[in-house]
C-alpha cells in the first residue's frame, strides 16, 4: 500500500528529468527553471494564492471527469460543458440587475449546472439509446459550442461601445466575493471544496455511487448484479456535465465578469489529467488540481524570468499524465507477480 503514495512523487521526479531536455533545448538551466517553477510561486503570498485561483476550475473539471469515468462513461466534453455553464452564468449575471447576491449566485449555479447537463445530454442519450461512442460525440460537441459562443459574442452579445466580442459586464451582486483582499481567490474555490466532499460522499458512500463504480468496473458484472447500467451511466454523464458547467460559472463570476471565447485555457482537457493523477478519487483530485495549478503559475514565472516559452507548463502536465499512467500500471504488475 505504501507504494501507492510514492507513485505521484516518483512520477513528478521522472517528469522533471524528462522535461529538462526541453528546458535545455530552450537554452535555460533546468535547475534554475525548476526553482522558478516550484519554489518561487510558493514563496510569496500573492502567487501562492494565485496557485489556488488556477486550481479552482481544475477541481471542478477534475471532479466532472472523475464522476463520469468512475461510471465507465468517457466524457471528454468537459471543455464544452464548461462553456455551456459559462453562457448560462453570463446571461444571469448581466440580466437580473435588481436581485441581491443571495438570490443571483445560487441562480447562476443552478442554471450553470443545468446548462452543463444540457450540453452533455445529446452524447449521453446517443450512447445509452443507440450505442454511439461518447468519446467522439463529446469531442465534437466541444468544437460545436465554440462556434455557438463565437456567434453569441459576434451577434447579440457584442459589446455595443467597443465592438469587442465580449458579453455585457456582470453587475456587482452577481460577482463572486473575493476571499482575501488583494488576491483573486474567490467564492468559487470554496464551492469547489464543498463539491469535493459531496462527490466523495456520493461516489464512496451511497448506493448510487456503488452502482456507478460497479458499472465502471465491469458492465457485464453490473448487469448481472441487476444494476440498470444505462440509467446509471446516463445520470453519471449528466451530473458530470453539470459539474463541468459549474467550472464555467466559477471562472466567469469569479475572474472575468464577462464571457470571452478564451475563458477556459483547456481546463476541460486538463481535468482529465487531474482526474487521472488523483486516481479518480475526489480528495486526490483536489490535491492534483493544486499541483497542476502550481505548474500553471510556475510556467508563467519561468517564462518571465528565463524566457522559456510558457507552453513548458503544458509539456510538463502532459508528460506527468503519461508517466503516472505507466507507473500506476507497473505497480499492478508487481503486485501480481509477487
Amino acid at each position: 500500500m505504501w507504494t501507492r503514495a510514492l507513485i505521484p512523487v516518483a512520477a513528478v521526479l521522472a517528469t522533471f528529468v524528462i522535461t529538462s531536455i526541453f528546458i535545455i533545448l530552450a537554452g535555460a538551466n533546468p535547475f534554475e527553471a525548476y526553482y522558478n517553477f516550484i519554489i518561487v510561486p510558493l514563496s510569496s503570498k500573492f502567487s501562492a494564492l494565485e496557485v489556488l485561483v488556477k486550481a479552482t476550475p481544475l477541481i471542478f473539471t477534475g471532479l466532472a471527469v472523475t464522476f463520469a469515468f468512475a461510471a465507465g462513461y468517457y466524457n471528454i466534453g468537459a471543455e464544452g460543458q464548461l462553456y455551456a455553464g459559462a453562457v448560462a452564468a453570463a446571461w444571469v449575471g448581466a440580466t437580473f440587475t435588481n436581485l441581491p447576491a443571495i438570490v443571483v449566485v445560487p441562480l447562476m449555479l443552478v442554471l450553470g449546472f443545468a446548462a452543463g447537463m444540457l450540453w452533455a445530454l445529446l452524447p449521453a442519450f446517443l450512447k445509452v439509446k443507440l450505442k454511439v461512442d461518447e468519446v467522439v460525440t463529446t469531442l465534437l460537441m466541444n468544437s460545436i459550442i465554440m462556434y455557438f459562443i463565437s456567434a453569441l459574442l459576434n451577434g447579440p452579445w457584442r459589446d455595443p461601445e467597443t465592438g469587442w466580442p465580449k458579453s455585457p459586464e456582470f453587475f456587482e451582486a452577481a460577482r463572486f466575493v473575493q476571499l482575501i483582499p488583494k488576491s483573486r481567490l474567490h467564492l468559487g474555490f470554496v464551492i469547489a471544496l464543498i463539491l469535493v466532499v459531496i462527490v466523495f460522499i456520493v461516489i464512496k458512500r451511497t448506493p448510487f455511487g456503488l452502482q456507478m463504480r460497479a458499472a465502471g468496473a465491469s458492465k457485464a458484472g453490473a448487469l448481472f448484479a441487476g444494476i440498470n447500467v444505462n440509467r446509471t451511466m446516463l445520470i453519471a454523464a449528466l451530473v458530470s456535465g453539470g459539474i463541468a458547467g459549474l467550472a464555467g460559472v466559477s471562472e466567469i463570476a469569479g475572474i472575468h465578469y464577462h464571457l470571452i471565447s478564451e475563458l477556459s485555457g483547456g481546463y476541460g482537457y486538463t481535468g482529465i489529467i487531474v482526474a487521472t493523477l488523483g486516481g479518480l478519487n475526489p480528495i486526490g483530485v483536489s490535491v492534483a488540481a493544486m499541483f497542476i495549478g502550481l505548474i500553471d503559475t510556475g510556467a508563467q514565472t519561468v517564462s518571465r524570468v528565463l524566457g522559456v516559452p510558457v507552453y513548458l507548463g503544458d509539456v510538463v502536465q502532459s508528460t506527468l499524465l503519461l508517466v503516472t499512467l505507466s507507473m500506476l500500471l507497473l505497480q499492478n504488475y508487481r503486485i501480481k507477480r509477487i
Binding site: F22, A26, Y74, I76, V135, Y269, I272, I273, T276, P309, V310, Y311, L312, D314, V315, Q317, S318, T319, L321, L322, L325, S326, L329, L330
Partner: peptide, 29 residues
C-alpha cells in the same frame, strides 16, 4: 503506452494529443 504497457487507450491517447500539442506550441515559440 497502449501496446507495451497496456494502459487505458482513451486516457493515453488523449495524453499523447496533449503532449504533442504542447511540444508543438513550445517548439514553435
Amino acid at each position: 503506452f497502449s501496446v507495451r504497457l497496456g494502459v487505458n487507450q482513451h486516457v493515453s491517447g488523449l495524453g499523447i494529443t496533449l503532449l504533442m500539442t504542447a511540444l508543438s506550441l513550445f517548439g514553435f515559440r
